[in-house]
Write a protein that binds this DNA or RNA. Sequence first.
DNA 1: GATGAAAGCAGTGCCTC
DNA 2: GAGGCACTGCTTTCATC
Lengths: 164, 164
Amino acid sequence: MTENTLTEFDATDFRIMNALVEDGRMSDVMLGERVHLSATAAARRRKLLEEQGAIKGYTAELDLPMLGLGIVVIVAIELRSQADSVLTEFEEAVVRCPSVTFCSFVSGDTDFLMMVHVKSFEDYDRIYRSELATLPHVAKIRSSFVMRRVTQRNVPPAVFARGR
Amino acid sequence: MTENTLTEFDATDFRIMNALVEDGRMSDVMLGERVHLSATAAARRRKLLEEQGAIKGYTAELDLPMLGLGIVVIVAIELRSQADSVLTEFEEAVVRCPSVTFCSFVSGDTDFLMMVHVKSFEDYDRIYRSELATLPHVAKIRSSFVMRRVTQRNVPPAVFARGR
DNA sequence: GATGAAAGCAGTGCCTC
DNA sequence: GAGGCACTGCTTTCATC
């Protein structure tokens, strides 16, 4: 229930997390079979992981290209200043952009990195004008189009090496 | 079952997808209430969306910081050449890196953009040496550390505007 | 898209190790 | 402290309309 108990997870916990990352709707019966536990024991551990916050929730994975959003653009944005109020105003505007799925303030060459999903290049042009170019305090926008996706995972495989 | 039927989705389909993105383990009964359908009707539509591939699957969302992976690094990699064999060898090596959750071949300033999850800066140094620096044909690596996450969504909100 | 019966599953308390 | 079993009540599934 609390959070900063520096919880210790054992191999079974990692196996449960692994199974549920692969199939979030797996029944407790199947989960139990998969991790060699009774369904009740598996369910109890699953709930504990949920309560502890290690499992934050479950989500359906949608096929965005099939929904007409086949193009992914990674956008680097530099602001005119890095004053606190400037950052805050920019961030508040970003969360309201309906095409943005990811935005982080980063160190390095640029200030923010974002990921944008669009239907077509024409659509990106439209969104560039209507969403990105209207964000406040922007000095420079650089767009990189995703040509081919090499890897896309929810969780780094390193986590699952611990399930043994 | 097939895929290129250019499937048409109605507002109820989008409402179902929205509900399941928010809670992938939602029962069909709850789903039916949420979209104003009987549980059976909701279940039938859910299954159809799964079979059509619009819903690719379900996954548990893990709290990576709680599992000791609190630092996210976005890595831009330039290769020495863009010959087909060079790209292929690089990509085959990347998918075997256990700390990489995202890698795409992109247009623009760099060749590949990747996302790496690590425990600490020391850990990044170790992974930089053991995973990234050993990737073949790399000319230049630029690392940006995520200082603050502004937005992180599975699906752009624009998709859900269609659920009405 | 709704209904109702049958099967399967999740949730609880209790017992064992 | 953690796993297993049995019971009860939902939930899902499938036939039928």
